[in-house]
């Protein structure tokens, strides 16, 4: 029963002053982990939707291309990027819950094994858990405890009920929450309930898809600490978010998504100071757009999915572009402990 021992150091998660300590602690563990294999490897996947345009003509809408990331046990990988860059779809692709008209190519490995559709179906909810964004992801007509417990055999129900109660206790969810319906939960409670579903599963890979929007400062920090705890207990966490600042507080690595691909995977330290260690022009632009930095947004928007782009996908908006950039997609390079897809980095 993994979850029991897992619960051990979840005690004071409100205690965000400890955050600094925790960061140091995990940095060392992260370093150790570097040598080990990644728990999840996503290599060069691309994803398109088959659509029927006027009449019976089929078109393919490419929404993810040449995307690679890795998630390591005990680490938090933040995935940031603007709306529509394919973050949720990546999560759904890993879990194998894409809509039926989606076409997925490329390679995925979990724990050294090929992640086939069958394998995904087998391990989702057990080895890999999703923490969704909002109360919409809870059945509006089912009581909270039933949802969190999920679909279990009858003989295990009593036991699971107890486990669920214990987890709720740890997250400070009172017994009357068990019998509530989703619409009766406050924002913070919803978050804790959603996180509980992942803890309940004792999964080793946690994918959180924007778990923090619309939260006040305190609840935000609290929620982030839950994920930190999961990583400290040895889970690999993929934290999908819009909020770079939140991501920086707890993650070990940050993957920057843009128009369906990864432009850079940076370490948290790279974001220190003025961000001069950041590799990609887009990451820098994001960094500069933050309020506490220069608060400068870059012009333009990410290309639409139906635009065909030969060269660098960021070409239009890049201030450092040169001739080479519009001819062929830049190669993914390892630079300085991170990876980047740009011609102008060495």
């Amino acid at each position: 029963m993994g979850y029991m021992e897992n619960m051990g150091n979840m005690g004071n998660m409100e205690n965000m002053e400890n955050m600094g300590n925790m960061e140091n602690k995990t940095k060392t563990t992260a370093k150790e982990k570097k040598k080990t294999e990644a728990l999840l490897k996503v290599e060069n996947i691309s994803l398109s939707f088959i659509q029927y345009a006027s009449g019976l003509r089929q078109t393919e809408l490419k929404v993810i291309s040449n995307l690679s990331i890795e998630a390591h046990s005990g680490e938090i990988l933040a995935v940031v990027g603007s709306s529509g860059s394919g973050k949720s779809l990546l999560a759904h692709a890993i879990l194998g819950i894409l809509p039926s008209n989606a076409k997925l190519d490329g390679k995925m490995e979990y724990n050294g094994q090929q992640l086939t559709p069958e394998k995904k179906e087998e391990i989702r909810g057990k080895e890999i858990a999703l923490v969704p964004q909002s109360t919409n992801y809870l059945d509006p007509l089912m009581r909270i405890s039933n949802q969190v417990i999920g679909c279990v055999e009858e003989k295990n129900e009593g036991l699971m009920k107890k486990v669920q109660r214990d987890i709720f206790q740890k997250y400070d969810l009172k017994p009357d929450v068990d019998r509530m319906f989703p619409h009766e939960l406050s924002g913070g409670m919803t978050r804790r309930v959603l996180v509980s579903t992942a803890v309940m599963s004792s999964a080793k890979l946690i994918i959180a898809d924007e778990p923090t929007p619309g939260l006040d400062e305190k609840t935000l920090n609290e929620t982030l600490s839950y994920f930190k705890d999961m990583a400290n207990r040895g889970c690999a966490v993929i934290l999908i978010t819009h909020d770079i600042e939140a991501a920086l507080k707890i993650s070990d690595k940050i993957a920057v998504f843009y128009a369906g691909t990864v432009l850079e995977v940076a370490n948290v330290e790279d974001f220190k100071n003025n961000g001069e260690n950041l590799r990609h022009p887009y990451t820098r632009a994001l960094w500069n757009a933050l309020p506490q930095n220069k608060f400068q947004a870059i012009k333009g928007h990410q290309p639409m999915q139906d635009e065909v782009i030969d060269g660098c996908i960021f070409y239009e908006r890049c201030s450092k572009k040169n001739e080479l950039c519009s001819k062929g997609i830049p190669q993914l390079k390892s630079v300085n402990g991170g990876v980047v897809r740009c011609n102008n980095v060495s």
């Binding site: 989702r124 999703l130 969704p132 909002s134 919409n136 992801y137 999920g150 679909c151 579903t197 599963s201």
Partner: peptide, 16 residues
């Protein structure tokens, strides 16, 4: 709906 998607993500499927 989103909640059925989530249920699938948690391993529920088919007739159940």
């Amino acid at each position: 709906s989103d909640y059925v998607l989530f249920a699938k993500a948690r391993g529920e499927k088919g007739l159940d």
